[in-house]
């Protein structure tokens, strides 16, 4: 059994890889929060954009991906919202992506 278990386990991401990815996302967020003024703006934008989207569709918070890319010149806020398939059909198949 354990042999079979191992065989299947390999297909999954290892727990250390999950840990690394979670930390990288979290720390990218936290490092910004402490220092620069623009992060406050980004937080605000994030909140308000989410509020607008939530007005039209029920957003599952677990299916929202937020990425902030910081280069020396600018910061880029990327919000990826997964929209359930049924909703898309109802609204005539429009692409909804913020």
């Amino acid at each position: 059994m354990s042999f079979l278990g191992n065989l299947f386990a390999k297909r999954q991401q290892s727990s250390s890889a999950v840990a690394r990815d979670r930390l990288q996302i979290l720390l990218a967020h936290e490092r910004g929060a402490g220092e620069s003024g623009d992060s406050e703006l980004i937080q605000k934008l994030h909140k308000e954009i989410m509020a607008v989207i939530a007005r039209h569709i029920a957003v599952d918070q677990d299916k929202v991906q937020i990425k902030v890319d910081r280069t020396s010149g600018c910061s880029m806020l990327e919000i990826d919202v997964e929209v359930p398939q049924e909703l898309l059909k109802k609204s005539g198949g429009e692409r909804q992506r913020a």
Binding site: S14, S15, S16, A17, A19, R20, L23, Q24, L27
Partner: peptide
């Protein structure tokens, strides 16, 4: 445990 990928590796921690 690091070899079995159950623990953050040295490289992971250094990278972060």
């Amino acid at each position: 445990r690091a070899a079995r990928k159950e623990m953050l590796s040295v490289e992971d921690v250094l990278e972060i």
